[in-house]
């Protein structure tokens, strides 16, 4: 039935419109948590003692990919760490 199909599409569109800002907000909260997590991982490099630093080194290859966006979000135009020269 084309009418039912159209109605279904309409409801789907409407639901997507409602969900759209919500998804953004959830992603923003998750990113804020991630940013804090990254700060904790880098804490040793920033001069804050971190007993787990040795283990977090294993995460280095993953962290380095996100490092550039992270320092930009934190309000630092250039990389604050001499060890990581992303820009």
């Amino acid at each position: 039935m084309p009418i039912t199909d159209n109605l279904k599409r309409l409801i789907k569109w409407y639901e997507a419109v409602l969900e759209h800002p919500h998804k953004t907000e959830i992603a923003r909260e998750l990113r804020a948590e991630d940013d804090l997590f990254l700060l904790m991982l880098y804490s040793e490099m920033l001069g804050i003692p971190n007993p787990a630093y040795y283990y977090t080194l294993e995460l280095y290859p993953y962290m380095i990919e996100e490092f550039h966006d992270w320092h930009l979000r934190m309000g630092m135009e250039k990389s604050p760490l001499s060890g990581i020269r992303c820009c």
Binding site: W13, Y14, A16, V17, H20, T24, A27, R28, R31
Partner: peptide, 20 residues
């Protein structure tokens, strides 16, 4: 594209959001 602020969105959905 960062999945938060910069997200490519279907124009109908974006219009709905913009209008509301």
């Amino acid at each position: 594209k960062d999945g938060v602020d910069f997200v490519p969105t279907n124009k109908f959905i974006l219009w709905g959001h913009h209008f509301t």
